[in-house]
């Protein structure tokens, strides 16, 4: 893989690795560019978030791969692998938190929704977006709640069949 004997930029293999890395970087950068365009062109926060996920996930992964192909020393490669892994773990958390807030607040243009099965079925345990609740702290971070507290197998405890079919649930 790494060929420390040849001077940099000389051997054919190294040039080939550089070329592949460059192609990868170019694609990643183009994705980032298009995402910035989408950030301006899409109509509401939730839609823009979809555009935002692109440079954060696939774009960054491609660029990191490209950078690793260019740098080629094991220290850098492993650190770049870590960057990719961190990004894969953390990006959806941000997306989820922001998306949740956006839907509860005014971050989504309801007139542009084909179906909104969440607003159609407000949760009884959950203060809706209409309630002001100015001083109450945000309900606990959603992530720990979904991450599983060893309560497996008890999740079907409440009335499943009743609420699910309400709203425009026309699909199979």
């Amino acid at each position: 893989m790494s060929a420390p004997t040849a001077p940099p930029g000389e051997s054919g293999l190294e040039v080939a690795l550089d070329a592949v890395g460059t192609v990868s970087i170019v694609v990643g950068v183009l994705l980032a560019l298009v995402a910035s365009v989408g950030l301006l062109s899409l109509p509401d926060v939730l839609s823009r978030m979809h555009a935002a996920t692109k440079p954060q996930v696939l774009g960054l992964l491609l660029v990191v791969i490209g950078g690793a192909l260019h740098l080629r020393t094991s220290v850098d490669v492993w650190m770049l692998v870590l960057v990719g892994a961190f990004q894969l773990v953390t990006a959806p958390v941000t997306a989820h938190v922001v998306g949740r807030l956006a839907h509860r607040g005014d971050g989504v243009r309801r007139d542009l929704l084909h179906v909104d099965e969440l607003t159609d079925r407000p949760d009884t345990t959950d203060p809706g977006p209409d309630e002001p609740e100015p001083d109450e702290p945000e309900p606990e971070e959603p992530e720990p709640a979904t991450r599983g507290r060893g309560r497996d197998g008890t999740g079907h405890a409440d009335g499943d069949g009743t609420g699910r079919r309400r709203g425009r649930d026309g699909a199979p």
Partner: peptide, 11 residues
């Protein structure tokens, strides 16, 4: 949520 085009907003 990792995939562009879909974001889970409530669980």
């Amino acid at each position: 949520s990792l995939t562009p085009g879909s974001v889970v907003i409530e669980v």
